[in-house]
């Protein structure tokens, strides 16, 4: 009944075993390289030769494609059409309708933008598929991210499925009292208050209880904290991070140098 909000898929793979920070740096580097690279084909190459192998190595290819094909592909197609029509490009026209035209240049630019966005979404999708949000947050707080920030991220991920479940119970309770949630629109509008009221009251109470509960466990204590979950950070992780950062810097230099 509880819908999962996090993308995380629990598997055993070399990517899952990487330090969350490494994966975050990897995702960010891929995005930066895709957007900064001076070469036209870089985003496509990243997609074909980095993202696709990564999804296979991480053993999340099925989930990855599921998401890309169902959610992202339709968006990208629309984006491509819009951009191809509206990006300025003085060159040979290849398609024309209602006075709008797609030129060779606008199609090329639109394709590059779409590929960049595909790389961006893909790299973060793989990050989220292979990294549990609480693992990422506890690694970040170990590195000095304020606990309050991690709490905001984690609790909002948890609260939404909980509220969905709660809303479901409230709807059941009010339907049992004869509230009509299935017929005409007007009757349903009238039925909003009995549903929203308990949800809002209940959630406020829950937020307070949650705050008391974590405070009772020393949330705002200023002493150095220890971590329940040991997160591996190997020398390979560190090397990989530096290598990725080097790649980004190299791309940046090439970009400035070549322009």
């Amino acid at each position: 009944m509880h819908e999962r909000l996090s993308f995380f898929v629990k598997r055993d793979s070399p990517i899952h075993r990487l330090n969350p920070m490494t994966k975050a740096v990897m995702a960010l580097s891929l995005v930066l390289i895709a957007f900064l690279s001076p070469w036209y084909w870089t985003p496509l190459a990243l997609f074909l030769f980095v993202i696709l192998p990564l999804s296979l190595v991480a053993r999340v290819a099925r989930e990855y494609w599921n998401f890309i094909l169902k959610v992202i592909l339709p968006t990208l197609i629309i984006l491509f059409i819009m951009q191809a029509f509206f990006l300025p490009g003085e060159s040979r026209s290849i398609f024309e309708v209602f006075g709008l035209e797609i030129t060779e240049l606008s199609a090329r630019l639109a394709f590059r933008n779409v590929m960049r966005i595909l790389v961006m979404i893909s790299s973060f999708t793989i990050l989220l598929l292979t990294t549990h949000p609480s693992e990422l947050m506890s690694d970040l707080s170990r590195r000095g991210l304020p606990g309050q920030f991690a709490y905001v991220v984690i609790s909002s991920l948890q609260i939404i499925p909980q509220m969905q479940a709660k809303a479901q119970t409230i709807i059941s309770a009010q339907r049992s009292r004869g509230l009509d949630t299935q017929s005409s629109f007007l009757r349903r509008v009238g039925g909003i208050l009995p549903l929203v009221g308990p949800l809002v009251f209940g959630s406020l109470v829950e937020v307070e209880e949650r705050a008391i509960a974590i405070e009772a466990r020393g949330f705002t204590s200023t002493r150095p904290k220890t971590f329940l979950r040991e997160i591996q950070d190997t020398s390979f992780d560190r090397a990989l991070r530096w290598a990725l950062i080097a790649c980004v810097i190299l791309t940046l230099i090439l970009r400035i140098w070549l322009s």
């Binding site: 409230i170 059941s172 049992s176 208050l193 009995p194 308990p198 009251f201 209940g202």
Partner: peptide, 15 residues
């Protein structure tokens, strides 16, 4: 109209 159902948690229905 035939079956009344009192849920476990009153806060899930009072408004």
């Amino acid at each position: 109209s035939r079956v009344g159902y009192v849920f476990q948690n009153p806060d899930e229905q009072l408004f």
